[in-house]
Computed example of a mutant assay.
Amino acid sequence: MSEQDYQPPKVWKWNQDNASAWSKTNRPIAGPTHEKSLPQGEHPLQLYSLGTPNGQKVTILLEELLAVGVTAAEYDAHLIRIGEGDQFSSGFVEINPNSKIPALLDVSETPPVRVFESGAILLYLADKFGHFLPEDRAGRTEALNWLFWLQGSAPYLGGGFGHFYHYAPVKIEYAIERFTMETKRQLDVLDRQLAEHRFIAGDEYTIADIAIWPWYGNLVRNDQYGAAEFLDVGSYQHVQRWAEEIENRPAVQRGRKVNRTWGEPSEQLHERHDAADFDTNTEDKRGK
């Protein structure tokens, strides 16, 4: 039966025998699949993540905080291999009942505070340490406008465009057209904003930039989905200018490596437990 002939049944049923590439990451029920405690390191913040765009948001902010001297932002970044179902362990579900990376445990608080959803983690850390979020009401609100814009828009880019253009086993014209249209609209939204401002929310670098760059910065720098030519990303000149400026920040270069398990070995730091790990434990240096 072709895709065009498919008709949904009256009641959907889960085919558990489907051994697709997504069978370990997607299921229609919540809760743990197995008992396993999460590891804990020595630092105040324990991060459980993978170096996807959502994971990069948090590690970039943590590295930015350390770069401005916030020693209390020291962290251990533990690798969660979502393709192997690590996010469904009992320990992970205890921190994030939604079983999605990233998840953060702040053990400096009594009792420890769990924070899940990447946008919530950025806001929590910015508020806790007093950096990368304006103090005045208008500036804070504008930064949060764009933080929540990203949280609502990125699923169209990732789960929509990225899935159907890059990952889906069948190329469905309707789906690709639908999500390409929306992705280009979003890029135009950003381009118009950045035509008038150095950074997303104004003249100040904030968690709005840190949230948006891993998705849209990587996209226009052709580090995501291999879709730069297809989307004509060069036409978004202001997004390109902004993306390059953010990419050149040393903290961004460090943060995007953390919990990354693909790409050049020098760009992969599977786990981060000390600042020295960037010099000694990337995949091109381990064991040497």
Rank of each mutant, 00 (worst) to 15 (best):
P9H: 07
V11P: 08
D17N: 13
N18L: 11
N18I: 08
A21P: 10
W22M: 13
W22R: 11
P28K: 06
P32H: 12
P32M: 13
H43M: 05
Q46D: 06
L50Q: 08
G51S: 07
V58G: 02
I60H: 02
L66F: 00
V70F: 01
T71L: 04
T71Q: 07
T71Y: 00
T71D: 07
L79W: 09
G83L: 06
F88I: 10
F88T: 09
F88G: 08
S89T: 14
I95W: 09
I95Y: 09
S99A: 13
K100A: 09
K100I: 09
I101C: 05
T110V: 14
S118D: 05
L123P: 04
Y124H: 06
A126E: 01
D127P: 06
F129L: 01
L144Y: 08
L144C: 11
L147S: 05
L150K: 11
G152H: 14
S153D: 13
S153I: 13
P155V: 08
Y156V: 14
H163R: 03
Y165T: 04
Y165F: 12
A175N: 06
T183K: 02
Q186A: 15
V189E: 14
D191C: 10
Q193P: 11
L194D: 08
R198N: 13
R198I: 12
Y205D: 01
D209T: 03
I212F: 10
W213T: 00
A228C: 04
E229S: 06
V233A: 01
G234D: 10
R241M: 06
R241S: 08
E244M: 07
E245I: 07
I246Y: 00
E247H: 09
E247Q: 08
R249M: 01
A251W: 02
Q253E: 03
Q253P: 00
G255C: 01
T261W: 01
G263W: 00
E271G: 10
H273E: 10
D279Q: 11
D279C: 05
N281S: 15
T282C: 08
E283C: 07
